[in-house]
Design a protein around this nucleic acid. Sequence first.
DNA 1: ATGCCTTACGTTATACGTAATTATT
DNA 2: AATAATTACGTATAACGTAAGGCAT
Lengths: 275, 275
Amino acid sequence: MIELAQLQQLIAVSEQGTISAAAEELHLSQPALTRSLQRLEGELGVVLFDRKRNRAALNRVGEQAVARAKAVLGAVDDMAMELRLYAARLSTIAIGSCGPAPMWDLAAELAERNPEKTLSTELGDTESLLAGLKRGSYRLILTDRPIEQPGILCQKYTQERLYVALPPKHPLSARPSIRLAELGQESILAYRDMGIWQRIVQNNPQLHYLVQSDRGTLAELVQATDLPCFSSNLTATRFLGRSNRVTVMLEDEEASVTFFLCARENDRDLFEQLC
Amino acid sequence: MIELAQLQQLIAVSEQGTISAAAEELHLSQPALTRSLQRLEGELGVVLFDRKRNRAALNRVGEQAVARAKAVLGAVDDMAMELRLYAARLSTIAIGSCGPAPMWDLAAELAERNPEKTLSTELGDTESLLAGLKRGSYRLILTDRPIEQPGILCQKYTQERLYVALPPKHPLSARPSIRLAELGQESILAYRDMGIWQRIVQNNPQLHYLVQSDRGTLAELVQATDLPCFSSNLTATRFLGRSNRVTVMLEDEEASVTFFLCARENDRDLFEQLC
DNA sequence: ATGCCTTACGTTATACGTAATTATT
DNA sequence: AATAATTACGTATAACGTAAGGCAT
């Protein structure tokens, strides 16, 4: 039986030019390599070298064999690499969402039910999430509208409503609800990866957003200052913690979103765990 | 290093269902196969089996691995087979011709100059010969007209003129030359694979051709009977041998052909040997 | 004389088989 | 009880390295 090691040896000889040099490269003695190559010739049933007693040069069949050997070894390497990738993908559940808070809830639930799995989370807009779901990049996605397409399972997952958290002394803190625009040109703390909430920010460009990319830093700033910040019904109450804030509902249309959980038909088991 | 034998073992397990059965098929002990598969898993860096103490079933990664393994083994088999084919082709000189006699001359010359090579000969019409030369099916071809195309070498090779060999008592035997049609509805011995000479036969359908597929049988009939037969300036004189025949030149236009030797540009060495 | 390939021979290392163990049907 | 996989251990085969030989540059 032909061995992959023999194909590597053949390639080494073609690269080094002599059997001696190839043997050294392969940490093998010269005679051992000679014999191994002879076996390969026997197993292939062809002569690969023009042997001149003192010189073993690849003949045309040998050159052809080298090209084929490289292809075979490449295929084997690819096989190993792609199997590792495949195994990794089987053991991870990738979820995508257009909003961060429900994604964290979902991730928490999945982690509890599938402690052996790795979770990966990603934010995106509904269109790209759906495309990713279809090509297998995501196992589950949370969209801002119901998806009705063949092969796609979809069900209402949760609703999120946005609030602003104001210091008690703030002029608007006594109101039950406001529109975000009423804050005028004030500063407000915001998280960078806000997904769908990006809409309400874009519609109120006059506000001064203090954008934080680190969730921990954001939490610290909330505790340490009395700057306004965002909050929602899904935000853990401990996020505001002992900070002295009054939450005021936002009246804007974009301040309320219903999230829908979607999975592919062949992932029905996973999907139904969560309904 | 992964071994091809291990990939075969993996495939055997997938086909037999159990390691035990696969071990038997492979003429291996069960423990040996178990260990070999464990090594394979280690080398690939993935788990291929769901092990249930008493049962080792391929998991999804394993199934994927089987598919890849089959592809790799197929590539190796193809490699071996195609190398043998390639080696065989390198050691043969395939020649094609539109006429048998000059092809035999050419083959004889090639055999003398390249005693280590195998010769293969084939008759065909000039168009298909040229196509075959271009795609590498032939190293040399003999055509009935000069070829002037880029990448193709071409030179006049020889001329052949057709005769009829008649018994001395035949009414036409005293003529220096005749047209084939003058034989009326007589019988005449002919060789099946006549290439370009097929033309003159087709133009004289009234004759009764006694077609022989075996050259030896044809020669025997020439000796044993006094039936008319064909002959040419390239036909070995010993073909007519001691048979009592008078050769009469044929006046028909198709009875004289000039043959041209053609080869591909990259075969200039071989081509120039013969000019 | 040096470099390179091959053959011969003794040795080692790797993979094998046998036997024992455990678990499942 | 029977089947199947794994682990342990002694063994054997196959490939290795060293040494020797021969040819070419």
